[in-house]
Design a protein around this nucleic acid. Structure first.
Lengths: 129, 129
DNA sequence: CTGCATGCAAAAACTTTGCACCGCC
DNA sequence: GGCGGTGCAAAGTTTTTGCATGCAG
């Protein structure tokens, strides 16, 4: 694959970000260094990097998709109240693939899990009320 | 909530379907009995029923969302090759909520998991090749 | 030079919404 | 009758794509 400053920039930002940005977020962030980048390019590279397994695409069931520069299997928490997405510190749940495969004639390659509820901030706010 | 033939029809179809249809699928199916229904109404009722917990909305990370008339917690398999979505026969993974909660200051209310890989049909096709 | 990646803008894909009308209660 | 649900179509949101140009190899 041919080098491109734009792709490099996207990947670098994602590797350093902890906020699981949307394509639009990434676009705006990169514009500060590279005012000429286009949203189409951002989408093209996000799709590419995600297909290569270098980043992860996350769906939150409402609003735009989000992206994660951490390509290692890990889990996400989505706050039902404020919509924030964050990483969870927990071990890989490899065993659930076996559970899924048990009564299934196809091939299980992996799983995607996200947890939902109230994030620490929103939990705290509710306690104070 | 006021009765509506359209909503009834959508719910009935979803309860009987095993194919996890998209909004468009549902729209087309219902048109055979009710040619005047509109896609907007289908979306409105799907959102409503899903908010009420009577159906489930499923995101597959590409293509439109799908819907499931089974409101009980259960798991889905998404085929990477043909895109088909199907139910898995496996017990609820309640314990993973505890694992997630372990190092997390917020409140875990639940999780969404889907497994991916090759469905039985696509696995079979590859064997024959 | 050659061809893949980009910028730009148009379009596609999916979903929501305003408004006038209809039908359940 | 009143009001919530509907049909229709327009608009909103998110993502993809065609095409001419630019830059890496």
């Amino acid at each position: 694959m041919k080098y491109s400053r734009q792709r490099e920039s996207i990947l670098q930002y994602l590797r350093s970000a902890t906020c699981h940005p949307t394509a639009e977020d990434i676009y705006h962030h990169i514009q500060t260094d590279n005012p000429n980048i286009s949203l189409g390019t951002v989408y093209r590279n996000l799709t590419l990097l995600s297909d290569l397994g270098q980043i992860q695409k996350i769906s939150t069931l409402d609003g735009p998709d989000r992206f994660d520069g951490n390509f290692l299997p890990h889990y996400h928490f989505v706050c039902r109240e404020c919509g924030k997405v964050q990483d969870l510190e927990m071990d890989a749940l490899d065993h659930i693939n076996l559970l899924a495969a048990h009564n299934f004639a196809g091939t299980i390659e992996g799983h995607v899990t996200h947890f939902f509820g109230k994030c620490p901030d929103c939990t705290m706010k509710d306690v104070i009320k």
